[in-house]
Design a binder for these strands. Sequence first.
RNA 1: GCCCCCAUGGUCUAGUGGUUAGGACGCCUGCCUUUCACGCAGGAGAUCGCCGGUUCGAGCCCGGCUGGGGGUACCA
Length: 446
Amino acid sequence: MRVRFAPSPTGQMHIGNARTAIYNWLLARGPERATFVLRVEDTDPERSSEANVAFLLDALAWLGLDWDEGPIRQTDNTARHQAALATLLVDGRAYRSRAGAAEVAAYRATHGAERGFRGEDDGEGAVRLRVPDTGATTFTDVIRGEIATPNVSMDDPVIARADGSVLYNFAVAVDDIDAQITHVLRGEDHISNTPRQLLVMEALGATPPVYAHLPLIRDESGKKLSKRHGAASVQQLRDLGYLPEAVVNYLSLLGAGFAADEEFFTPQELAQRFRLAAVSKSPAVFDERKLRHLNGQHLRALPVEELTRRLQAFTGADVDLGPAVAICREKIQTLADFWPLAGFLYDGPADDPAAAAKWLGSEEQIATLRAARDRLAQVPTWDVASLEAALSDLLDELGLKPGQLYQPIRVALAGRTVSPGIFETLAVLGPEASLARIDRSLTTRG
RNA sequence: GCCCCCAUGGUCUAGUGGUUAGGACGCCUGCCUUUCACGCAGGAGAUCGCCGGUUCGAGCCCGGCUGGGGGUACCA
């Protein structure tokens, strides 16, 4: 079994493309052990650049998707393309035509809208493939079953420009045969291209691969996902603080056809479970909130040291984030959530007037904070257990509700009403910094 | 216009002739609790797109329709 992922390098890697890559990889790393071929479709010089190819490879690497052969460039196959083109021309399966869009439109105007364009051999011009006038081109899609297209409805497709440069539908067919691809997994938007490619293969006397057309991923409005609505590329997801394993997990779930009783899977588990025939036929809407949820699960499944490593890289911080990560892990869902929650440990208290007004605005609150300060100063061992014991005792003595004691402390330390656990925060800050921050609040507010 | 594909709560889905239509995200309530989260327990939310047919019986099978999407490029 040989599969391939053959994107055109358009810069950022679209989420739909990522899903296609993932499904191919799943097949390659699952029980089937398919050989995964990576091919870059660069026949269109308009959009293919080295920088874009680099983006592509970078995205695959980030996702953790490795391949077995390639990356091969479609343009490297030029000799094969030309040979195949010559064969078709000699055999009369293709012809040179000067007809352009105007001629095609005129043809349809006189022959009926349901009839595809049929040209004449002009001996020069672009190369068109001869499509039969009768019958239908059919194939059995693994996911959708039999799909038939009446030949008469198809135009004779242009497969090469007048200068000999080949076009997508021709190059793909030749390349897939060349690479001995057995299973083509690609987006649903290629269903209509398949008959044309099949016709090319047939004209070349080749046996076509098996096709599996994956449903598209849509945005909230039902359209193809685009940058206009939130994240549309894997690079964006990375910048938003999502973990690659969560992205792979989430994207796999969109249409994988797994039983719905479980949703958290490692890439390896996904590969183990993946079954091509079970893939859903209907398109799915990309739901970032569910990705967030799954991301939180993956994030918490990571060992603290590993999560710290990733946060270190994500934030670019040069201080050791380890202690902060340990106390924030349960409270964040993306890497991007970390700094807003934990930054005060390093940058000092945030400036939130509303928080200060609410918890450090009255005489009683200041008095409570002072009492807490005095008690903390006497804590023999500055660790979570001792801090909790000391403040808990004070709480009883003062006869206050927990929030009445803890919130003023929290605001003094963090400058905000939201922070990691108060004892953990004190422990990570250490006695000097903790007491200094409290003192500062006491002097400015008191 | 023409060709093709799709259709279960807001979203992702399970379900293949007999179920109170199951799960997850999100939302609401409660518990936990020093905040926010996490976790746990509940709850609201679905005329299974519509009409007709087959059948004792249809979300599941058939037909039509509607809606959505894709293609219709000398782009990929």
